Computed example of a mutant assay.
Amino acid sequence: MNRRVSVLAAGLALAFAATACGSSDSDDANADTGAWSYVSGDGKTYEADEVPERIIAHAYAAAALMEHGIKPIAVYADGPIKDDVGLQGVDFDGIEVIGETWGKIDVEKAAELKPDLIVGDYWPVEKAYSGVEDGVEEASKRIAELAPIVGPAQGDSIVDLIEGYADLAESLGADVDGGSGADAKAAFESAREAFSEAAAAKPGLTALAVGPYDDTYAVAVPKYAPELLDFQEWGLDVIVPEKPDADFPYWQSLSFENADTYQPDLLLFDDRNYPGNFETLEAQPTASHIKAFAAEQYTEWPAYWLHTYTDYAAQLEELTAAIEKADPNIGS
Protein backbone atom coordinates (compact mmCIF):
# COMPACT_ATOMS: atom_id res chain seq x y z
CA MET A 1 0.00 0.00 0.00
CA ASN A 2 2.06 2.95 -1.31
CA ARG A 3 -0.46 5.72 -1.04
CA ARG A 4 -0.30 8.55 1.46
CA VAL A 5 -2.95 8.15 4.14
CA SER A 6 -5.80 10.57 4.57
CA VAL A 7 -8.74 10.21 6.91
CA LEU A 8 -11.91 10.17 4.84
CA ALA A 9 -14.58 9.31 7.38
CA ALA A 10 -16.55 12.24 8.71
CA GLY A 11 -16.39 12.91 12.41
CA LEU A 12 -12.86 11.61 13.05
CA ALA A 13 -11.12 13.72 15.65
CA LEU A 14 -7.49 13.13 14.72
CA ALA A 15 -5.43 14.54 11.88
CA PHE A 16 -3.06 11.83 10.66
CA ALA A 17 -0.15 11.93 8.26
CA ALA A 18 2.03 9.16 6.83
CA THR A 19 5.45 9.66 5.33
CA ALA A 20 7.24 7.17 3.14
CA CYS A 21 10.63 7.63 4.74
CA GLY A 22 12.21 8.74 7.97
CA SER A 23 11.13 8.03 11.52
CA SER A 24 10.84 9.65 14.90
CA ASP A 25 11.07 8.36 18.45
CA SER A 26 7.50 7.79 19.59
CA ASP A 27 8.35 8.09 23.29
CA ASP A 28 10.04 11.48 22.81
CA ALA A 29 7.22 12.73 20.60
CA ASN A 30 4.57 11.69 23.09
CA ALA A 31 6.46 13.06 26.08
CA ASP A 32 7.33 16.41 24.50
CA THR A 33 4.18 17.33 22.60
CA GLY A 34 1.43 14.85 23.43
CA ALA A 35 1.51 13.78 19.78
CA TRP A 36 1.60 10.18 18.56
CA SER A 37 4.07 8.58 16.17
CA TYR A 38 4.61 5.00 15.03
CA VAL A 39 6.87 3.43 12.40
CA SER A 40 4.66 0.79 10.81
CA GLY A 41 5.38 -2.45 9.01
CA ASP A 42 5.14 -0.81 5.59
CA GLY A 43 8.13 1.39 6.47
CA LYS A 44 6.11 4.57 6.86
CA THR A 45 5.86 6.77 9.93
CA TYR A 46 2.30 7.48 11.01
CA GLU A 47 1.65 10.55 13.17
CA ALA A 48 -1.30 12.19 14.88
CA ASP A 49 -1.94 15.24 17.01
CA GLU A 50 -3.35 13.01 19.76
CA VAL A 51 -2.81 9.42 20.84
CA PRO A 52 -5.42 7.20 19.11
CA GLU A 53 -8.00 5.70 21.45
CA ARG A 54 -10.75 4.24 19.25
CA ILE A 55 -9.01 1.24 17.72
CA ILE A 56 -10.38 -1.45 15.43
CA ALA A 57 -8.05 -4.42 15.07
CA HIS A 58 -7.70 -7.77 13.42
CA ALA A 59 -8.44 -10.28 16.17
CA TYR A 60 -4.84 -11.55 16.38
CA ALA A 61 -3.55 -7.98 16.56
CA ALA A 62 -6.14 -7.27 19.25
CA ALA A 63 -4.82 -10.18 21.33
CA ALA A 64 -1.31 -8.75 21.06
CA LEU A 65 -2.40 -5.29 22.17
CA MET A 66 -4.59 -6.65 24.96
CA GLU A 67 -1.62 -8.48 26.48
CA HIS A 68 -0.37 -4.96 27.27
CA GLY A 69 -3.74 -3.59 28.38
CA ILE A 70 -4.76 -1.83 25.13
CA LYS A 71 -8.36 -2.83 24.41
CA PRO A 72 -9.85 -2.16 20.96
CA ILE A 73 -13.45 -1.13 20.41
CA ALA A 74 -13.97 -3.72 17.64
CA VAL A 75 -12.29 -6.69 15.98
CA TYR A 76 -12.55 -8.61 12.73
CA ALA A 77 -11.45 -12.24 12.48
CA ASP A 78 -10.63 -14.77 9.76
CA GLY A 79 -13.28 -17.21 11.00
CA PRO A 80 -15.59 -17.88 13.95
CA ILE A 81 -13.72 -16.60 17.01
CA LYS A 82 -14.91 -19.46 19.21
CA ASP A 83 -13.33 -21.98 16.82
CA ASP A 84 -10.05 -20.15 16.18
CA VAL A 85 -7.13 -21.93 17.85
CA GLY A 86 -5.23 -18.65 17.98
CA LEU A 87 -7.95 -16.89 19.98
CA GLN A 88 -8.71 -19.42 22.68
CA GLY A 89 -8.82 -17.72 26.06
CA VAL A 90 -8.89 -14.17 24.67
CA ASP A 91 -11.64 -12.18 26.38
CA PHE A 92 -13.49 -10.14 23.76
CA ASP A 93 -16.32 -9.26 26.13
CA GLY A 94 -17.51 -5.72 25.43
CA ILE A 95 -15.72 -5.59 22.07
CA GLU A 96 -17.78 -5.32 18.88
CA VAL A 97 -17.18 -8.12 16.37
CA ILE A 98 -17.45 -6.80 12.81
CA GLY A 99 -16.36 -9.88 10.89
CA GLU A 100 -15.83 -13.60 11.42
CA THR A 101 -15.15 -14.68 7.84
CA TRP A 102 -11.87 -14.08 6.03
CA GLY A 103 -12.29 -11.30 3.49
CA LYS A 104 -15.58 -9.99 4.89
CA ILE A 105 -15.75 -6.97 7.22
CA ASP A 106 -18.85 -5.00 8.14
CA VAL A 107 -17.50 -1.62 7.09
CA GLU A 108 -20.82 0.10 7.73
CA LYS A 109 -20.69 -0.97 11.37
CA ALA A 110 -17.01 -0.01 11.52
CA ALA A 111 -17.83 3.48 10.25
CA GLU A 112 -20.48 3.92 12.95
CA LEU A 113 -17.79 3.28 15.57
CA LYS A 114 -15.71 6.21 14.27
CA PRO A 115 -12.26 4.60 14.67
CA ASP A 116 -9.07 6.61 15.07
CA LEU A 117 -6.88 3.71 13.99
CA ILE A 118 -7.06 0.27 12.33
CA VAL A 119 -4.47 -2.31 13.43
CA GLY A 120 -3.33 -5.50 11.73
CA ASP A 121 -0.22 -7.34 10.57
CA TYR A 122 1.59 -6.06 7.49
CA TRP A 123 2.28 -8.92 5.04
CA PRO A 124 5.35 -8.15 2.88
CA VAL A 125 4.53 -10.83 0.28
CA GLU A 126 1.09 -9.33 -0.35
CA LYS A 127 2.25 -5.78 0.47
CA ALA A 128 -0.95 -5.29 2.46
CA TYR A 129 -2.33 -5.30 5.99
CA SER A 130 -4.63 -7.97 7.43
CA GLY A 131 -8.10 -7.15 6.16
CA VAL A 132 -7.16 -5.52 2.87
CA GLU A 133 -5.11 -8.26 1.17
CA ASP A 134 -5.71 -9.63 -2.30
CA GLY A 135 -8.86 -11.75 -2.27
CA VAL A 136 -10.68 -9.63 0.31
CA GLU A 137 -14.00 -8.41 -1.07
CA GLU A 138 -13.79 -4.86 -2.38
CA ALA A 139 -16.53 -3.60 -0.06
CA SER A 140 -14.54 -4.81 2.94
CA LYS A 141 -11.36 -3.08 1.79
CA ARG A 142 -13.16 0.23 2.30
CA ILE A 143 -12.27 -0.08 5.97
CA ALA A 144 -9.01 1.57 4.90
CA GLU A 145 -11.00 4.74 4.19
CA LEU A 146 -12.07 5.07 7.84
CA ALA A 147 -8.67 5.51 9.47
CA PRO A 148 -5.00 4.70 8.87
CA ILE A 149 -4.04 1.02 9.07
CA VAL A 150 -0.84 0.25 10.98
CA GLY A 151 0.93 -2.72 12.55
CA PRO A 152 4.25 -4.53 12.58
CA ALA A 153 5.33 -6.66 9.63
CA GLN A 154 5.33 -10.40 9.45
CA GLY A 155 9.01 -11.17 8.95
CA ASP A 156 11.80 -13.45 10.09
CA SER A 157 10.69 -14.01 13.69
CA ILE A 158 7.52 -14.11 15.75
CA VAL A 159 9.54 -12.45 18.50
CA ASP A 160 10.02 -9.43 16.24
CA LEU A 161 6.28 -9.37 15.56
CA ILE A 162 5.43 -9.54 19.25
CA GLU A 163 7.93 -6.82 20.07
CA GLY A 164 6.48 -4.73 17.23
CA TYR A 165 3.09 -4.90 18.91
CA ALA A 166 4.71 -4.02 22.23
CA ASP A 167 6.17 -0.92 20.57
CA LEU A 168 2.75 -0.02 19.18
CA ALA A 169 1.10 -0.61 22.57
CA GLU A 170 3.71 1.59 24.25
CA SER A 171 3.06 4.36 21.74
CA LEU A 172 -0.61 4.08 22.68
CA GLY A 173 0.16 4.53 26.37
CA ALA A 174 0.84 1.02 27.69
CA ASP A 175 3.49 0.21 30.27
CA VAL A 176 5.17 -2.69 28.48
CA ASP A 177 7.97 -3.09 31.03
CA GLY A 178 5.66 -4.01 33.88
CA GLY A 179 2.51 -5.98 34.53
CA SER A 180 1.23 -9.06 32.72
CA GLY A 181 3.11 -8.36 29.51
CA ALA A 182 6.48 -8.43 31.28
CA ASP A 183 5.55 -11.61 33.16
CA ALA A 184 4.53 -13.27 29.89
CA LYS A 185 7.85 -12.34 28.31
CA ALA A 186 9.78 -13.89 31.20
CA ALA A 187 7.78 -17.13 30.91
CA PHE A 188 8.43 -17.20 27.17
CA GLU A 189 12.18 -16.77 27.62
CA SER A 190 12.23 -19.72 30.00
CA ALA A 191 10.25 -21.85 27.53
CA ARG A 192 12.56 -20.85 24.67
CA GLU A 193 15.62 -21.92 26.66
CA ALA A 194 14.05 -25.31 27.38
CA PHE A 195 13.16 -25.72 23.69
CA SER A 196 16.74 -24.96 22.63
CA GLU A 197 18.11 -27.42 25.17
CA ALA A 198 15.79 -30.16 23.93
CA ALA A 199 16.73 -29.52 20.29
CA ALA A 200 20.45 -29.51 21.16
CA ALA A 201 20.04 -32.88 22.82
CA LYS A 202 18.69 -34.32 19.52
CA PRO A 203 21.16 -32.91 16.93
CA GLY A 204 20.03 -35.27 14.16
CA LEU A 205 16.31 -34.70 14.60
CA THR A 206 14.46 -33.31 11.57
CA ALA A 207 10.94 -31.88 11.47
CA LEU A 208 8.50 -31.14 8.65
CA ALA A 209 5.55 -28.73 8.91
CA VAL A 210 2.53 -29.86 6.90
CA GLY A 211 -1.10 -29.01 6.26
CA PRO A 212 -2.84 -31.91 4.46
CA TYR A 213 -6.22 -31.02 3.00
CA ASP A 214 -8.61 -32.35 0.34
CA ASP A 215 -6.33 -33.92 -2.29
CA THR A 216 -3.14 -32.04 -1.40
CA TYR A 217 -0.25 -32.70 0.96
CA ALA A 218 0.98 -29.16 1.62
CA VAL A 219 4.48 -28.69 3.02
CA ALA A 220 5.21 -25.34 4.69
CA VAL A 221 8.08 -23.14 3.54
CA PRO A 222 9.90 -21.78 6.62
CA LYS A 223 10.96 -18.62 4.78
CA TYR A 224 7.36 -17.41 4.98
CA ALA A 225 6.50 -18.86 8.39
CA PRO A 226 8.37 -16.86 11.05
CA GLU A 227 7.60 -19.33 13.82
CA LEU A 228 9.36 -22.04 11.78
CA LEU A 229 12.31 -19.70 11.27
CA ASP A 230 12.40 -19.24 15.03
CA PHE A 231 12.47 -23.01 15.55
CA GLN A 232 15.37 -23.27 13.12
CA GLU A 233 17.19 -20.42 14.87
CA TRP A 234 16.74 -22.15 18.21
CA GLY A 235 18.19 -25.44 17.00
CA LEU A 236 15.40 -27.52 15.42
CA ASP A 237 16.18 -28.74 11.90
CA VAL A 238 12.97 -27.88 10.04
CA ILE A 239 13.10 -29.26 6.50
CA VAL A 240 12.89 -26.67 3.70
CA PRO A 241 10.86 -27.91 0.70
CA GLU A 242 12.66 -27.71 -2.62
CA LYS A 243 9.89 -26.42 -4.90
CA PRO A 244 7.50 -23.88 -3.31
CA ASP A 245 4.33 -23.18 -5.28
CA ALA A 246 5.01 -20.38 -7.75
CA ASP A 247 1.71 -18.59 -7.13
CA PHE A 248 1.69 -18.95 -3.33
CA PRO A 249 5.19 -19.69 -2.02
CA TYR A 250 4.10 -20.30 1.57
CA TRP A 251 3.74 -23.99 0.62
CA GLN A 252 4.91 -26.75 -1.67
CA SER A 253 1.83 -28.68 -2.74
CA LEU A 254 2.34 -32.41 -3.30
CA SER A 255 -0.10 -35.10 -4.30
CA PHE A 256 -0.73 -37.71 -1.64
CA GLU A 257 0.97 -40.21 -3.93
CA ASN A 258 4.15 -38.18 -3.37
CA ALA A 259 3.61 -37.47 0.31
CA ASP A 260 6.74 -39.47 1.17
CA THR A 261 8.98 -37.07 -0.77
CA TYR A 262 10.32 -35.74 2.52
CA GLN A 263 11.03 -38.07 5.43
CA PRO A 264 11.28 -36.18 8.73
CA ASP A 265 11.70 -37.64 12.19
CA LEU A 266 8.90 -35.46 13.52
CA LEU A 267 5.78 -34.39 11.63
CA LEU A 268 4.22 -31.03 12.55
CA PHE A 269 0.54 -30.57 11.66
CA ASP A 270 -0.92 -27.11 11.03
CA ASP A 271 -2.99 -26.71 14.20
CA ARG A 272 -5.57 -24.44 12.56
CA ASN A 273 -7.23 -27.49 10.96
CA TYR A 274 -6.21 -30.17 13.43
CA PRO A 275 -7.37 -32.93 13.80
CA GLY A 276 -9.11 -32.67 10.41
CA ASN A 277 -5.82 -32.51 8.51
CA PHE A 278 -4.49 -35.47 10.49
CA GLU A 279 -7.59 -37.47 9.58
CA THR A 280 -7.20 -36.46 5.93
CA LEU A 281 -3.68 -37.88 5.84
CA GLU A 282 -4.63 -40.93 7.89
CA ALA A 283 -7.23 -41.86 5.26
CA GLN A 284 -4.62 -41.98 2.48
CA PRO A 285 -3.12 -45.34 1.50
CA THR A 286 0.31 -43.68 1.27
CA ALA A 287 0.21 -42.33 4.83
CA SER A 288 2.13 -45.36 6.07
CA HIS A 289 4.97 -44.47 3.66
CA ILE A 290 5.72 -41.42 5.81
CA LYS A 291 7.96 -42.96 8.46
CA ALA A 292 7.27 -40.39 11.17
CA PHE A 293 3.52 -40.80 10.74
CA ALA A 294 3.80 -44.59 10.85
CA ALA A 295 5.90 -44.31 14.02
CA GLU A 296 3.34 -41.90 15.56
CA GLN A 297 5.94 -39.16 15.86
CA TYR A 298 3.81 -36.11 15.23
CA THR A 299 2.50 -33.07 17.03
CA GLU A 300 0.86 -29.75 16.20
CA TRP A 301 2.52 -26.60 14.93
CA PRO A 302 1.18 -23.09 15.73
CA ALA A 303 0.74 -21.96 12.13
CA TYR A 304 0.66 -18.24 11.34
CA TRP A 305 -1.27 -17.10 14.42
CA LEU A 306 1.19 -16.49 17.26
CA HIS A 307 1.07 -12.87 18.46
CA THR A 308 1.68 -13.01 22.21
CA TYR A 309 4.38 -14.23 24.57
CA THR A 310 1.72 -16.09 26.55
CA ASP A 311 0.72 -18.22 23.57
CA TYR A 312 4.29 -18.67 22.38
CA ALA A 313 5.43 -20.00 25.75
CA ALA A 314 2.58 -22.52 25.85
CA GLN A 315 3.27 -23.73 22.31
CA LEU A 316 7.01 -24.07 22.93
CA GLU A 317 6.34 -26.20 25.99
CA GLU A 318 4.24 -28.63 23.90
CA LEU A 319 6.82 -28.75 21.11
CA THR A 320 9.62 -29.29 23.61
CA ALA A 321 7.81 -32.31 25.03
CA ALA A 322 7.39 -33.75 21.52
CA ILE A 323 11.08 -33.23 20.72
CA GLU A 324 12.15 -34.90 23.95
CA LYS A 325 10.06 -37.99 23.12
CA ALA A 326 11.06 -38.23 19.45
CA ASP A 327 13.49 -40.79 18.02
CA PRO A 328 15.89 -38.88 15.71
CA ASN A 329 16.54 -41.97 13.59
CA ILE A 330 13.01 -42.52 12.23
CA GLY A 331 13.27 -40.49 9.03
CA SER A 332 16.73 -41.65 7.99
Rank of each mutant, 00 (worst) to 15 (best):
I55P: 08
D25M: 00
A31M: 06
D106M: 03
S40F: 00
W102T: 15
A48W: 04
D121H: 12
K114P: 04
N30E: 06
V119K: 01
G41H: 04
G43E: 06
A110C: 12
L87D: 06
S26K: 02
G41K: 03
M66Y: 07
E133L: 15
L14Y: 06
A31Q: 12
E47L: 09
E126M: 14
E112M: 14
D116R: 10
G89P: 06
V51I: 15
A35R: 07
T19H: 11
D42K: 00
A110E: 14
G131S: 11
F92R: 09
D121S: 14
T19E: 10
A128T: 00
P115W: 05
I81G: 05
A139V: 10
V119Q: 08
A17N: 14
V125W: 07
Y129I: 02
S26L: 01
H58C: 11
V97L: 04
D121T: 12
S26N: 05
I143L: 09
W123C: 05
A20W: 09
G135L: 15
M66E: 13
S40T: 00
L65S: 06
P72S: 04
E133H: 15
K127D: 13
K44A: 05
D116W: 03
V125Q: 10
P124Y: 05
R54T: 10
A35F: 00
G94R: 15
P72I: 03
A59E: 05
I56N: 09
D116A: 11
K109L: 02
Y129E: 06
L14P: 11
A57N: 02
E50Q: 15
S23Y: 08
E50D: 02
L87Q: 06
T33F: 08
P124V: 03
E112N: 13
G34A: 10
D84Y: 04
D49K: 06
E133K: 15
D42A: 01
E67L: 10
Y122A: 01
G94D: 10
S37I: 08
S140E: 07
A139G: 10
W36G: 00
